[in-house]
Design a protein around this nucleic acid. Structure first.
Length: 391
DNA sequence: TCTGGGGTCCTAGGACCC
DNA sequence: TCTGGGGTCCTAGGACCC
């Protein structure tokens, strides 16, 4: 019998802030932006802040109205990632099979670890204690015979709880839940449930897989059929790798000036390209994203080329061409994004990356990358960005 | 109350090939 | 001389997750 823990940190970013700043403990902490930050949203609200109605994804200005006395913090991803590594190290002490889902949660396969840590519930309690002792943070745990049910169970126990679904009790556990608890059915699917009058998993359980597929499409239908029965989600069974890399920025005020927009595009291209250089991937596909202030309307464009990208300059030129093709002049740009689809580097064609014409440019870009890595504060970038900073 | 940033996966249509 | 069918790659858009 398989046995999994889903471990999910409680209000992770806010908890790290309260750990690092004892004066914030017991206070409503809101990570995501300062009260005056236009267009920022709440990333994490501490449980104290949730009592005021503050929630993730809520605009910061709204959070500031609900909780004027709150401690507002923009956030420090570097620090959260560092803390995340500490937590994951603790998990690794309980099983070699740890599957990290995001910065603050993971599945831990504890199948067959009874001799080392005792029965599953005891193991989960030990894990929670170890996380608290070694990192100063609390974690909620769900325990079940498969990852999907463990994931839902951990959500039932927040904060700092433990919820165990007994083996064989998976379907009964799911059937008692409202459709809102189905992980993988978001706002749109919830609306579709509501239109049809479905409120609990039991309402969905009465349908065959074919009927669900007819209502929701083959893929979602098959997923829902399994989910309400407490069966493993197939997406958890396939190992997934990195397929793309991107950066995007929402501007406090819409941009209208084309030079400024293109300068921002260059900044995004630099970010992505230098991150790309630090991986073992190459890219032949670039993409952009434009969101207009008017109507919150978003459109994208992408293009695939025969040969992999060689230089930042080349990446930027390709993004710029796409942008000029898509952009509707005169419209205010709210958000701009740039990215690249990744593929394994082809060693046979490696030589082409270093062809004559690109070699000088590549060396220059590589040294900029190295200097930036060594002296982050130096921020050595191309002239175009320096111009941007002065404006 | 206007709605972040970084990702993955799915769908649907068109091009192209056999 | 009326236009099959399956596989694969590409593009655009959307749903969903934390």
């Amino acid at each position: 019998m398989k046995c999994f823990i889903h471990a999910d940190m409680d209000a992770f970013y806010a908890s790290v802030e309260q750990l690092d700043h004892p004066e914030y403990r017991g206070k409503p902490v809101i990570v995501g932006g300062l009260p005056g930050d236009r267009r920022s949203v709440v990333s994490t609200a501490s449980y104290e802040a949730r009592r005021y109605g503050v929630r993730s994804a809520m605009p910061i200005v709204q959070a500031a109205r609900l909780c004027p006395g709150g401690v507002f913090i923009r956030g420090n991803m570097e620090r959260y990632r560092e803390k995340s590594r500490e937590v994951m190290d603790v998990f690794a002490g309980f099983s070699p099979e740890v599957r990290q889902l995001s910065v603050d949660e993971a599945f831990i396969d504890i199948t067959g670890t009874e001799k080392l840590f005792g029965p599953p519930e005891e193991t989960a309690r030990k894990l929670k204690r170890r996380v608290r002792e070694e990192t100063g943070l609390t974690v909620s745990a769900g325990l079940a015979s498969n990852k999907y049910v463990a994931k839902i169970a951990s959500g039932m126990s927040k904060p700092d709880g433990l919820f165990a679904v007994p083996p064989g009790g998976e379907a009964a556990f799911m059937l008692g839940l409202p459709v809102g608890k189905i992980w993988g059915a978001g706002a749109k699917t919830q609306e579709a449930f509501a239109r049809r009058g479905y409120t609990t998993c039991a309402d969905l359980h009465q349908f065959s897989e074919d009927v669900l597929a007819g209502m929701f499409g083959d893929s979602l239908g098959a997923f829902l059929y399994r989910a309400v029965r407490g069966e493993e989600a197939e997406t958890f069974e396939t190992e997934r790798g990195t397929h793309s890399m991107s950066a995007e920025r929402t501007f406090p005020f819409d941009l209208y000036d084309e030079f400024e927009i293109e300068t921002q595009l260059f900044a995004l291209a630099s970010e992505v390209f230098f991150r790309l250089l630090q991986t073992s991937f190459q890219s032949r596909t670039v993409f952009i994203k434009i969101r207009y202030g008017e109507g919150f309307y978003t459109e994208g464009g992408q293009e695939t080329f025969r040969d992999p990208l060689g230089t930042l300059n080349e990446f930027y030129e390709k993004l710029l061409a796409l942008f000029r093709k898509k952009y509707r002049p005169g419209k205010g740009v709210r958000l701009l994004g740039a990215g690249a689809a990744l593929e394994a580097r082809n060693p046979a064609r490696q030589g082409e990356l270093f062809d004559e014409s690109n070699e000088k440019q590549r060396r220059l870009e590589q040294s900029i990358l190295e200097i930036n890595a060594q002296f982050p504060q130096a921020a050595l970038r191309r002239g175009r960005l320096i111009t941007l900073r002065r404006r």
